[in-house]
Design a protein around this nucleic acid. Structure first.
Lengths: 190, 190
DNA sequence: TAGTCCATGTAAGATGTTACATGATTCA
DNA sequence: TGAATCATGTAACATCTTACATGGACTA
């Protein structure tokens, strides 16, 4: 797993992001994951409960109520002050080239949670920096294609082009996102 | 890691794919990875050498020459007959919904290696099945958007749209791929 | 009270990351 | 011969997967 060192996996921050909205139990979180594209970042109990344990040990989340003695029932968690800080620090981190190359999904996840905690200008800044990095990487990819493109098999070349197209798509998306953020604000897709 | 049970990780098959072209040493493989988008599937010695060991233990690859006694030098590997069979089985596996959802990159990797081992009609079949699954998943995603789209924050919605756009991009790519495979055959991008 | 679902967890295994170790080769 | 770099690996650690375990609550 390409963990772009932020002090936690994408799953960790996805959980943090949901808990930032409202206190929830592990079961609730799991359901929220399963029923949404967040499932992409894992939705098995064997991943979520250990992740919650990690977050507790780090002091980023805590049980909402005093633990009911030898209780085994539903146990909602909420962010601690430190957890909130960690979440905000993650949100505010500028996108890097490494993240673009190895973990775009993580970047999109980050952006997904921004509206709940950061003002619009911060989101716009994110999109501009993101686009910058993606475009820089596209230059690399184009250079590679000009260099080694001749030796590729037909399907190899097509696969490579799929990657390029994907990143071009991110550039278009980013432009559209910035436009929507700065104008209509909450408008839906064209 | 979402390993869509095929009996090996994407890294394993990426290595197998390169060795299918020609015998190479771990060092060569690593260089090939580092210098290409295959790096996406990892390029650290700590991943590649253990992976080669696994492939050896499975009887999928073997040293090209008799091991030079207590040798520590360059050691090229080549596919065994079983390794070739495993590689072909992987290549020929039809794309599943699960792979589309959790491991598109693996599917593109698979397609990338197809030209070296399968005839064009097989590639066309792959693209059709792939498109079918992607379109099916797009229906799910659209349904989700209509259902939960109202409660999303602006950036949450944008992030979700990014996912949808990505898959639409795969559909377009797949159409173009099929066209190029069935007509011009080796033509470059428009 | 028996069965079913809710809810939390654990155990074993696979794979990847970072960082370091080590032996051979080459070249100044 | 000393330094760089080639080439292979290992150790410690983190995270995820699958599969199973467990206990409480609700309902027939």
């Amino acid at each position: 797993m390409r963990t772009v060192k932020t002090g936690g996996s994408n799953l960790d921050f996805a959980l943090l992001g949901l808990l930032h909205q409202a206190a929830r139990s592990g079961y609730d979180l799991r359901k929220a994951f399963t029923a949404s594209p967040l499932a992409h970042f894992s939705d098995s109990p064997g991943a979520i409960y250990p992740a919650l344990l990690r977050l507790r040990r780090r002091g980023w989340i805590e049980p909402e109520h005093v633990t009911p003695a030898g209780g085994r029932g539903r146990q909602p968690f909420r962010l601690t002050a430190r957890g909130r800080r960690a979440f905000l620090a993650w949100l505010a981190a500028p996108p890097t080239r490494d993240e673009v190359v190895y973990d775009v999904d993580g970047l999109v996840l980050r952006f997904a949670f921004m509206s709940q905690a950061l003002p619009v200008p911060a989101l716009v800044r994110f999109q501009r920096a993101f686009r910058q990095e993606v475009q820089g990487y596209l230059v690399e990819l184009d250079r590679f294609l000009r260099g080694a493109g001749g030796e590729m098999t037909p399907s190899g070349r097509l696969a490579f082009e799929s990657g390029i197209e994907g990143f071009r798509g991110y550039v278009r998306w980013s432009r559209r996102a910035e436009r929507r953020l700065t104008t209509g604000e909450g408008r839906s897709a064209p």
